[in-house]
Simulated scan of single mutants.
Amino acid sequence: MVIFIFFAATWYLSLFSQTFFQHRYAAHGAFTMSKGWERFFFIFTYITQGSSYMSPATYAIMHRLHHAHTDTELDPHSPSNSSNIFSMMWDTRTVYQQILHNRIPVEPRYTKNLPVWKSFDKFANSAISRLMWVVGYTLFFVAFATSPYQYLLLPIVISMGAFHGAIVNWFAHKYGYINFRLRNTAMNLLFVDVLMLGESYHNNHHKHPSSINFGKRWFEIDPVYYIIKTLSFIKVITIVNFPKRQPAIS
Protein backbone atom coordinates (compact mmCIF):
# COMPACT_ATOMS: atom_id res chain seq x y z
CA MET A 1 0.00 0.00 0.00
CA VAL A 2 2.84 2.42 0.83
CA ILE A 3 4.34 2.00 -2.63
CA PHE A 4 1.05 2.73 -4.38
CA ILE A 5 0.46 5.84 -2.24
CA PHE A 6 4.00 7.00 -2.99
CA PHE A 7 3.51 6.35 -6.70
CA ALA A 8 0.22 8.28 -6.82
CA ALA A 9 1.70 11.18 -4.85
CA THR A 10 4.74 11.32 -7.14
CA TRP A 11 2.58 11.14 -10.25
CA TYR A 12 0.30 14.03 -9.29
CA LEU A 13 2.83 16.27 -7.54
CA SER A 14 5.30 15.94 -10.42
CA LEU A 15 2.53 16.63 -12.91
CA PHE A 16 1.29 19.62 -10.93
CA SER A 17 4.76 21.18 -11.00
CA GLN A 18 4.94 20.62 -14.75
CA THR A 19 1.54 22.06 -15.62
CA PHE A 20 1.54 24.88 -13.06
CA PHE A 21 5.12 26.13 -13.03
CA GLN A 22 6.88 24.94 -16.17
CA HIS A 23 3.91 25.03 -18.54
CA ARG A 24 1.36 27.67 -17.57
CA TYR A 25 3.82 30.01 -15.83
CA ALA A 26 7.19 29.63 -17.57
CA ALA A 27 6.06 28.80 -21.11
CA HIS A 28 2.89 30.86 -21.40
CA GLY A 29 3.03 33.52 -18.69
CA ALA A 30 -0.61 32.97 -17.75
CA PHE A 31 0.15 34.49 -14.34
CA THR A 32 2.98 36.28 -12.58
CA MET A 33 4.62 35.88 -9.18
CA SER A 34 7.33 37.52 -7.12
CA LYS A 35 10.95 36.42 -7.39
CA GLY A 36 10.68 34.85 -3.94
CA TRP A 37 7.71 32.68 -4.91
CA GLU A 38 9.40 31.85 -8.19
CA ARG A 39 12.40 30.48 -6.29
CA PHE A 40 10.03 28.55 -4.01
CA PHE A 41 8.41 26.85 -7.00
CA PHE A 42 11.83 26.12 -8.53
CA ILE A 43 12.64 24.13 -5.39
CA PHE A 44 9.14 22.61 -5.16
CA THR A 45 9.39 21.45 -8.79
CA TYR A 46 12.81 19.92 -8.18
CA ILE A 47 11.61 18.04 -5.11
CA THR A 48 8.45 16.74 -6.76
CA GLN A 49 10.04 15.82 -10.10
CA GLY A 50 13.29 14.44 -8.74
CA SER A 51 15.27 12.53 -11.33
CA SER A 52 13.04 13.74 -14.19
CA TYR A 53 13.35 17.44 -13.32
CA MET A 54 13.40 19.80 -16.30
CA SER A 55 14.68 23.37 -16.29
CA PRO A 56 11.61 25.65 -16.41
CA ALA A 57 13.34 28.02 -18.84
CA THR A 58 14.43 25.21 -21.16
CA TYR A 59 11.02 23.57 -20.94
CA ALA A 60 9.40 26.91 -21.80
CA ILE A 61 11.57 27.46 -24.88
CA MET A 62 10.95 23.92 -26.13
CA HIS A 63 7.21 24.25 -25.54
CA ARG A 64 7.04 27.60 -27.30
CA LEU A 65 8.78 26.00 -30.28
CA HIS A 66 6.14 23.26 -30.21
CA HIS A 67 3.32 25.80 -30.42
CA ALA A 68 5.03 27.79 -33.15
CA HIS A 69 5.85 24.76 -35.32
CA THR A 70 3.26 22.12 -34.37
CA ASP A 71 3.44 19.00 -36.55
CA THR A 72 6.19 20.41 -38.78
CA GLU A 73 9.83 19.36 -39.03
CA LEU A 74 10.71 22.10 -36.53
CA ASP A 75 8.38 20.72 -33.85
CA PRO A 76 10.60 19.31 -31.05
CA HIS A 77 8.07 16.58 -30.23
CA SER A 78 5.48 15.45 -32.75
CA PRO A 79 4.25 11.99 -33.80
CA SER A 80 4.41 13.34 -37.35
CA ASN A 81 8.22 13.30 -37.15
CA SER A 82 8.73 9.96 -35.38
CA SER A 83 8.00 6.35 -36.21
CA ASN A 84 7.13 5.41 -32.63
CA ILE A 85 6.64 6.91 -29.20
CA PHE A 86 10.12 5.97 -27.98
CA SER A 87 11.93 7.72 -30.82
CA MET A 88 9.78 10.81 -30.29
CA MET A 89 10.66 10.98 -26.60
CA TRP A 90 14.35 10.44 -27.36
CA ASP A 91 14.20 13.27 -29.89
CA THR A 92 12.52 15.40 -27.23
CA ARG A 93 15.32 14.65 -24.81
CA THR A 94 17.91 15.54 -27.46
CA VAL A 95 16.30 18.92 -28.17
CA TYR A 96 16.00 19.61 -24.44
CA GLN A 97 19.72 18.95 -23.91
CA GLN A 98 20.66 21.07 -26.91
CA ILE A 99 18.67 24.03 -25.64
CA LEU A 100 19.81 23.55 -22.03
CA HIS A 101 23.50 23.58 -23.02
CA ASN A 102 23.17 26.29 -25.70
CA ARG A 103 24.13 23.93 -28.51
CA ILE A 104 21.54 25.26 -30.94
CA PRO A 105 20.54 28.85 -31.70
CA VAL A 106 17.19 30.00 -30.34
CA GLU A 107 15.43 33.06 -31.69
CA PRO A 108 14.98 35.87 -29.11
CA ARG A 109 11.19 35.72 -29.42
CA TYR A 110 11.26 32.34 -27.66
CA THR A 111 13.41 33.50 -24.73
CA LYS A 112 11.38 36.40 -23.37
CA ASN A 113 10.33 36.56 -19.70
CA LEU A 114 11.78 33.20 -18.69
CA PRO A 115 12.24 32.13 -15.05
CA VAL A 116 16.00 31.81 -14.67
CA TRP A 117 18.06 30.42 -11.78
CA LYS A 118 21.24 29.24 -13.48
CA SER A 119 23.13 27.93 -10.46
CA PHE A 120 20.14 25.93 -9.25
CA ASP A 121 19.39 24.51 -12.69
CA LYS A 122 23.03 23.55 -13.16
CA PHE A 123 22.85 21.32 -10.09
CA ALA A 124 19.29 20.08 -10.63
CA ASN A 125 20.09 18.94 -14.17
CA SER A 126 23.42 17.36 -13.25
CA ALA A 127 24.12 13.63 -13.46
CA ILE A 128 24.94 13.49 -9.75
CA SER A 129 21.57 14.98 -8.84
CA ARG A 130 19.67 12.51 -11.00
CA LEU A 131 21.73 9.63 -9.63
CA MET A 132 20.99 10.69 -6.06
CA TRP A 133 17.26 10.62 -6.79
CA VAL A 134 17.47 7.22 -8.48
CA VAL A 135 19.30 5.79 -5.47
CA GLY A 136 16.76 7.36 -3.12
CA TYR A 137 13.79 5.97 -5.05
CA THR A 138 15.38 2.52 -5.19
CA LEU A 139 16.07 2.47 -1.46
CA PHE A 140 12.48 3.53 -0.80
CA PHE A 141 11.20 0.59 -2.85
CA VAL A 142 13.59 -1.78 -1.10
CA ALA A 143 12.28 -0.58 2.26
CA PHE A 144 8.56 -0.62 1.49
CA ALA A 145 7.81 -2.88 -1.48
CA THR A 146 5.81 -5.93 -0.43
CA SER A 147 5.79 -7.67 -3.81
CA PRO A 148 8.31 -8.02 -6.66
CA TYR A 149 5.64 -6.73 -9.03
CA GLN A 150 5.70 -3.37 -7.28
CA TYR A 151 9.19 -2.83 -8.67
CA LEU A 152 7.58 -2.44 -12.09
CA LEU A 153 6.56 1.03 -10.91
CA LEU A 154 10.15 2.05 -10.15
CA PRO A 155 11.18 2.86 -13.77
CA ILE A 156 8.06 5.01 -14.10
CA VAL A 157 8.92 6.92 -10.93
CA ILE A 158 12.47 7.48 -12.16
CA SER A 159 11.35 8.79 -15.58
CA MET A 160 8.00 10.25 -14.55
CA GLY A 161 8.29 13.36 -16.68
CA ALA A 162 8.84 11.31 -19.83
CA PHE A 163 5.65 9.36 -19.17
CA HIS A 164 3.65 12.54 -18.70
CA GLY A 165 5.12 13.98 -21.87
CA ALA A 166 4.44 10.84 -23.87
CA ILE A 167 0.77 10.77 -22.93
CA VAL A 168 0.20 14.31 -24.18
CA ASN A 169 2.72 14.68 -26.99
CA TRP A 170 2.08 11.31 -28.61
CA PHE A 171 -1.43 10.13 -27.76
CA ALA A 172 -3.09 13.57 -27.69
CA HIS A 173 -1.85 14.17 -31.24
CA LYS A 174 -3.15 10.82 -32.50
CA TYR A 175 -6.35 9.99 -30.63
CA GLY A 176 -9.24 11.83 -29.04
CA TYR A 177 -11.87 14.42 -29.89
CA ILE A 178 -11.76 18.10 -30.80
CA ASN A 179 -13.64 21.16 -29.65
CA PHE A 180 -11.86 23.52 -32.06
CA ARG A 181 -10.81 23.09 -35.68
CA LEU A 182 -7.09 23.84 -35.80
CA ARG A 183 -4.30 23.55 -38.34
CA ASN A 184 -2.65 20.81 -36.35
CA THR A 185 -3.42 17.39 -34.87
CA ALA A 186 -3.92 18.43 -31.23
CA MET A 187 -6.87 16.61 -29.65
CA ASN A 188 -8.48 16.25 -26.25
CA LEU A 189 -7.46 12.84 -25.02
CA LEU A 190 -9.79 12.15 -22.11
CA PHE A 191 -13.41 13.09 -21.44
CA VAL A 192 -12.67 13.21 -17.72
CA ASP A 193 -9.09 14.30 -17.13
CA VAL A 194 -8.48 12.35 -13.93
CA LEU A 195 -4.88 11.38 -14.70
CA MET A 196 -3.44 14.51 -16.29
CA LEU A 197 -4.65 17.56 -14.31
CA GLY A 198 -5.96 19.32 -17.41
CA GLU A 199 -2.95 18.57 -19.61
CA SER A 200 -4.79 16.14 -21.87
CA TYR A 201 -7.23 18.84 -23.02
CA HIS A 202 -4.67 19.50 -25.71
CA ASN A 203 -6.98 20.73 -28.45
CA ASN A 204 -8.37 23.34 -26.06
CA HIS A 205 -4.86 24.35 -25.06
CA HIS A 206 -3.65 24.84 -28.63
CA LYS A 207 -6.66 27.07 -29.25
CA HIS A 208 -6.06 29.17 -26.12
CA PRO A 209 -2.40 28.57 -25.11
CA SER A 210 -2.28 31.17 -22.32
CA SER A 211 -5.62 30.42 -20.69
CA ILE A 212 -5.43 29.36 -17.03
CA ASN A 213 -8.31 26.91 -17.59
CA PHE A 214 -7.59 24.10 -20.06
CA GLY A 215 -11.16 22.77 -19.81
CA LYS A 216 -13.81 24.31 -22.06
CA ARG A 217 -16.89 22.06 -21.87
CA TRP A 218 -18.92 21.20 -18.78
CA PHE A 219 -17.30 17.77 -18.32
CA GLU A 220 -13.76 19.03 -18.92
CA ILE A 221 -12.70 19.69 -15.35
CA ASP A 222 -9.26 21.24 -14.93
CA PRO A 223 -8.37 20.97 -11.21
CA VAL A 224 -5.26 23.14 -11.55
CA TYR A 225 -7.46 26.03 -12.67
CA TYR A 226 -9.06 26.08 -9.21
CA ILE A 227 -5.66 25.89 -7.53
CA ILE A 228 -4.53 28.86 -9.62
CA LYS A 229 -7.64 30.79 -8.60
CA THR A 230 -6.95 29.98 -4.94
CA LEU A 231 -3.29 31.04 -5.17
CA SER A 232 -4.43 34.26 -6.83
CA PHE A 233 -6.96 34.89 -4.05
CA ILE A 234 -4.28 34.58 -1.37
CA LYS A 235 -1.92 36.81 -3.41
CA VAL A 236 0.74 34.20 -4.19
CA ILE A 237 0.28 34.83 -7.94
CA THR A 238 -1.38 37.43 -10.15
CA ILE A 239 -3.47 36.10 -13.03
CA VAL A 240 -2.71 37.67 -16.40
CA ASN A 241 -4.77 35.62 -18.82
CA PHE A 242 -8.33 34.80 -17.81
CA PRO A 243 -10.35 32.15 -19.69
CA LYS A 244 -11.96 33.52 -22.84
CA ARG A 245 -15.73 33.43 -23.10
CA GLN A 246 -16.63 31.91 -26.44
CA PRO A 247 -18.32 28.77 -27.80
CA ALA A 248 -16.34 25.56 -27.28
CA ILE A 249 -17.25 24.20 -30.71
CA SER A 250 -16.03 26.27 -33.64
Rank of each mutant, 00 (worst) to 15 (best):
M1T: 11
V2C: 01
I3G: 01
F4M: 09
F6N: 04
F6I: 04
T10F: 03
W11V: 05
Q18A: 04
T19W: 04
H23S: 09
R24F: 06
Y25D: 01
A27P: 07
A30M: 10
T32Y: 13
K35I: 07
K35L: 08
E38S: 12
F44G: 00
T45P: 01
Y46F: 15
Y46V: 13
Q49E: 12
S52L: 01
Y53R: 09
Y53L: 04
A57R: 01
Y59I: 05
I61Q: 04
I61A: 02
M62W: 05
H63S: 06
L65P: 00
L65R: 09
H67I: 09
T72M: 07
L74K: 15
S82T: 07
S83I: 14
S83T: 14
N84C: 11
I85Q: 07
I85A: 09
S87R: 14
M88A: 05
D91S: 15
D91M: 11
Q97H: 15
I99C: 13
I99Y: 09
L100T: 06
H101G: 03
R103V: 02
Y110D: 05
K112L: 09
N113T: 04
N125L: 12
I128S: 15
R130N: 06
V135W: 02
G136M: 14
L139Q: 13
F140A: 02
V142E: 10
F144L: 06
Y151F: 15
I158T: 02
G161M: 01
A162D: 13
F163D: 06
H164I: 03
G165N: 03
G165W: 00
A166V: 06
W170H: 03
W170N: 00
A172E: 00
R183C: 08
T185I: 05
T185Q: 14
N188W: 00
F191V: 08
F191D: 10
V192R: 14
S200I: 00
H202W: 07
N203M: 01
N203T: 04
N204S: 12
K207E: 14
K207W: 08
H208S: 11
H208F: 15
S211A: 11
S211R: 01
I212V: 12
K216V: 12
K216S: 13
R217S: 15
R217W: 06
E220P: 04
E220M: 04
D222V: 00
P223F: 05
Y225G: 00
T230A: 15
L231R: 08
L231Y: 03
K235C: 12
I239L: 09
Q246E: 15
Q246G: 07
P247Y: 11
P247K: 10
P247M: 12
